[in-house]
Design a protein around this nucleic acid. Sequence first.
DNA 1: TGTTAGCACTCTAGTGGGTTGAGTGCTAAA
DNA 2: TTTAGCACTCAACCCACTAGAGTGCTAACA
Lengths: 349, 349
Amino acid sequence: MGIDERKQRVLEAIIKDYVATAEPVGSRTIARKYNLGVSPATIRNEMADLEEMGFIEQPHTSAGRIPSQLGYRYYVDCLMEAYSLSEAEETLLRSMFVEKMGDLEQVIQETSKLLSRFTNYTAIILGPTPVGGKLRQVELIPLQEQLVLMVIVMDSGVVLHKMLELPGPVASEDLHHVSYVFNSKLRGIMLENMRRTLLQELYDELQHKKQILRLALDILDYYQQAPQWEKSHLGKVYLGGVINILNQPEFRNFDKIRRILSVLEEESELRELLTDTNETGITVRIGAENRREEFQDCSLITVTYDVNGKAIGRVGLLGPTRMEYPKATSILEYVASILSEALQGYYSR
Amino acid sequence: MGIDERKQRVLEAIIKDYVATAEPVGSRTIARKYNLGVSPATIRNEMADLEEMGFIEQPHTSAGRIPSQLGYRYYVDCLMEAYSLSEAEETLLRSMFVEKMGDLEQVIQETSKLLSRFTNYTAIILGPTPVGGKLRQVELIPLQEQLVLMVIVMDSGVVLHKMLELPGPVASEDLHHVSYVFNSKLRGIMLENMRRTLLQELYDELQHKKQILRLALDILDYYQQAPQWEKSHLGKVYLGGVINILNQPEFRNFDKIRRILSVLEEESELRELLTDTNETGITVRIGAENRREEFQDCSLITVTYDVNGKAIGRVGLLGPTRMEYPKATSILEYVASILSEALQGYYSR
DNA sequence: TGTTAGCACTCTAGTGGGTTGAGTGCTAAA
DNA sequence: TTTAGCACTCAACCCACTAGAGTGCTAACA
């Protein structure tokens, strides 16, 4: 049994109606609201077929139908037509977008708010990952005798900082010297290759200055050891509009909300959620397609944003499976594009 | 009508029981569980008095009593005896505390998680405010021809950064020179005095180098203009255990939760919440004592943390008015003290 | 052969009455 | 002043009933 055109239109009608109302859709409703030119009885027959094929389901005998996960998937893959933002919407979005105010972090934070406000879903943005980016500058700033703040600025404008505790007191000039050597060696190197690159060259440069060599090596060791440090290599996660989850009728259930929120509270979970795909374009995860069991009833749409043609992070929208897919994807893509554009400014070309 | 000792004990019993069970407390329960040596009837009389005085109230005629806001206030001020953490608890807390891993931000973030896990309330921490602190180092890092990243490191280890767009292209050496001048002039100056101090001295230093003077002034102007920048002067807000709100039976109500979460989502609201007092010690805000109407049913306990005897931020616990005040305050104070201790390490003395 | 009207059937959600039980206030006795 | 006794109140729960939406099936129709 194939899925002919009329079945498609019935499925589409069911999805559209259910997305709009969050109520199971009956045959009469479809016949009335979406003029397919056939009677409810005929639609009932089609619905029975669609149900058998697994595209829709019935909460209980005397209720209408709701789209199944498979139904949404089919809709997203085959049926849905692209929603194109109107001129007015684009202008509005652009006008709300805060460009180049403050730093990168702020731009992204604001973007997540904007996105959630515009869609009424929850926005999740993975910030630029330092890993893969190139170093621009390293500063070692002495705070106390044995305490140094290491500030690393990436080409992308991402700023990392880490406190280093040195094994012994160090003269300020020595530290300065190490800073200088690091900088002259490191510019343009990838963060993850920092240690390797440096080790090779430090000896040449500093062999006549044992004391400083020792210090430089200590710092590198410190860098290597600290497992916490690695975390900051992964890119921060920004959330916007978590509150919107509470507005979805399907989440009017404390247990569900608790479980979803507990995932949203864990930065590492979110990062995983956004990074478990390598696709560069847009991805749509419907219900159980999300690995996390807490997101059974959620869909997550993500898209990369990029600078100089290279993807550097992901923007996501989390909502119920009953999501406005066409609109959400369009807005998401548009916002990602203006974010890319804005970030372009921060990046050296 | 005074509040004699027996009334106190009845009030205390009601509060303790209600805090533990979240159910209205009846006279029988008190007579049974808290041996005051009198019958339920006597307790009923006392309760009638307490109600008349406004310390307790009745949800409806045939229910027990619950403490009123005034009742909690009296309890916190007069009745409550300090809860002292056991050796074991202190050890456990200390062992879970992550010291000097990574940077300041991470320590505070982890502290908020620790605090919320330990108390089952929501932790809110206001990070160190750059304002009032002293500058340690300023770095101007060129990213593009007209784009400069300004990194400011405070004595406290707080790192601020801001993107500056210059009106025209600038040679890297010039920028370096400005960096150098800034640094030599600024160390030890308070952030908010930066501009004033610099203006006075820049002329002396740079009058022979018109081009660089111009640049330096532009940068200062930029700093002065940008209103967004001011925000980062205020100290970040860290949240932990938002999920715990959902576990309180009094918040099993979507409207309440939505309203509370919407406040928690706004960093500025939280900052206001924590900063609208100047008291240096512990503060307890019960119900409507919190200005925000959304927190009618919440209590917020806050305490300052400090370094070198100077308060630099606040740690707070947000829970229902039915809070375990003695335990919460003790844990909060202890955690604030180990946080202070840990931060001491970051601060130059 | 596909479509449709008609109809019996199913199941949820909502309503209203009755009961239970916890807790109270009042009164009178100890 | 305390306490036992008692009538009273009220939320919460249970249960039966109804209304209504929606279905599947059958038989007639184009």
